Simulated scan of single mutants.
Amino acid sequence: MSHTIIVGIDGSDNAECALQWAITHAQKTSAEIRIVSAYTVPGVNMSQADIVYPADFDDAVKKTVEDIAEAAAATVTKAGVPVSTTIVPGDASGVMVEHSKNAALAVVGARGRGGFAGRLLGSVALAMPAHSQCPTVVVPSTWPTRVMPTTPLPIDDPVRTSDRPSAEADGRSRPDFSGEVVAAVDPFETDTPVLRAAAAQAAIYGVPLRLVGVTATHILSPEWMPSEEHLIRMYDEAAKAFTASADSLKGDFPDLEVRFSIFDAPATEVLVSATYTADLLVIGSRGRGGFVSTVLGSTSQGVLSHAVCPVRVVRVNRRQPGRRR
């Protein structure tokens, strides 16, 4: 397998944030970095406007992109990481997707230079998790500074957790996943691509892995509300499944500490709230519901739009679900 990390560079501050994250990851994994930059020359409908670009306009655009890529490569070299650059004409999203075919990981910023100011995700950050042939890490525009929303999402305590009660925990207003890699997994599946990818990431960084699951009884039909006995049984079954998930990792990751928290709340709100403290969130590219044509699940899109820590998106094939209890 390739040990190359591709990084989309466009000269924006967010691209610099993505590059710094990629450098740190490459140092820990002995990977090399490939800087990928794309450029397009604006087209003009001559029937609508009498505009003629200078003959060397294409060369000037390309030279600007080359300078940006070379500066990024110099930063990588200074960090002691092997680096190469690729500069090609074309749409940035398409170019990154194409290069993901021969990469172990893609890293992009959540926002680039283009697009409308009000759009939460840039076009590349939206396209890569959905179509990339390798996992994609989307880095927030201010990382490593974690800019909290004006009104953080209110999240209740988990209904089940592996954490032991403590006076410090009782005094917190929300779950704290500081110093952990958080994996968003189905609480009733014991082995998934997301689980394995998150475990590998946590092992590389030498931090605990936190499994976060959502039971979603809050969206059940009001005509049928589960009894307290039913809820308790469901929560207990989810906790047993997460314990089995942790046990399944011991063979490949014997030194990895695995913790879990199970919530009964909207999935997007739980996962966005997790990014308030987690070092990294790992999610799947697909959800359970929605149309087959929706390549990136609605939960994944919501999380990527509002996350304040890096998010790693793992491709999940709908036809190959994880092993269920």
Rank of each mutant, 00 (worst) to 15 (best):
F177D: 15
Q320H: 15
T190G: 09
M234F: 10
E269L: 09
G118R: 00
Y235H: 15
Q20G: 03
F253T: 02
S221Y: 03
T161S: 12
G90M: 11
R233S: 13
S293R: 14
S93K: 14
Y235C: 10
S221Q: 05
T24Y: 00
S84P: 12
I283T: 05
A197H: 03
V181P: 12
P187Q: 13
D279K: 11
V314T: 15
E98R: 13
D50C: 07
V97M: 15
T142G: 03
A31W: 00
V139M: 02
G115R: 02
S300H: 14
T151D: 10
P54H: 05
D67L: 15
S300K: 13
V214Y: 01
F188H: 15
F260W: 13
Y205A: 00
A167V: 14
S166V: 13
A265G: 07
V181M: 14
A199Y: 02
E180C: 15
Y39W: 11
G284V: 02
Y276K: 04
R312S: 15
W21G: 06
V207P: 00
T161F: 05
D252F: 02
A69S: 12
P208Y: 01
L126D: 03
A278N: 04
I68H: 09
A26H: 01
R34I: 02
A38I: 02
A74N: 11
M148V: 07
F263L: 08
H218E: 08
T145P: 11
